[in-house]
């Protein structure tokens, strides 16, 4: 009479134990499989950080107050009449320091004077313009506009006062008028 009840209870207890073990086991199984299925890549974060580090290194290359920054506020903004002088300029491109383009180069162009440079390819025609526009700095000597060293003139102001048509003219999208307005 009494025994079956006890037995039943014990059976239930054991069933419960089995169910609990089962639940526990399934939970571990499912969660580990779930973790595997997430497609998580634990190297991805490091890759992302390294990519960011490379980008920061690239963008941090220029100092915040660099006066060669086209947006720099440094330098004077004198009225420009257009007298151009190269005084004893020596120059080599930074990427090829051993190849001298100019050795003690001197040039005088008066205001309102039109001048054409001719010469063999590579003799430094474009370089003169690039130094005038301050794309590069002379290694020694000075490039002057109205007897003021271009390096003392605000770079944006200097370039605003020079019309430049490159060797490969670029037209931006829009009308011709839009393109003229840009420059």
């Amino acid at each position: 009479m009494y025994l079956p009840v006890v037995c039943d209870n014990i059976m239930n207890l054991i069933s419960q134990l089995i169910i609990d073990l089962l639940s526990s086991f399934i939970s571990i199984m499912f969660s580990t499989f779930g973790a595997g299925q997430s497609g998580a890549d634990f190297s991805a974060k490091k890759e992302g950080l390294e990519a960011a580090a490379r980008l920061f290194a690239l963008s941090d290359g220029m100092a915040e107050d660099d006066e060669d920054d086209p947006l720099s506020e440094q330098g004077n903004k004198p009225e420009i009449k257009g007298k151009v002088q190269f005084k004893n300029v020596s120059f080599a491109y930074p990427s090829r320091p051993d190849t001298k383009i100019y050795r003690h180069f001197t040039l005088d162009i008066d205001s309102r004077q039109s001048v054409a440079f001719t010469g063999r390819s590579g003799c430094g025609k474009s370089t003169a313009l690039q130094l005038l526009l301050r794309f590069y700095r002379a290694n020694s000597g000075s490039v002057e506009v109205d007897s003021k060293d271009v390096t003392d003139i605000n770079i944006g102001w200097l370039r605003d006062n020079i019309g430049y048509v490159g060797q490969m003219p670029v037209l931006f999208a829009g009308s011709i008028l839009d393109n003229i307005k840009v420059s």
Partner: peptide, 29 residues
């Protein structure tokens, strides 16, 4: 030799020969 040849002189310039024609000691890059 890089030659600067005046192609047009404004009225302010009386003599086109007054333009300094520089000689560039340049090595082609």
């Amino acid at each position: 030799t890089a030659k600067a040849i005046p192609i047009h002189n404004s009225d302010s310039l009386k003599n086109s020969d007054s333009v300094t024609v520089p000689t560039a000691n340049a090595v082609p890059i």
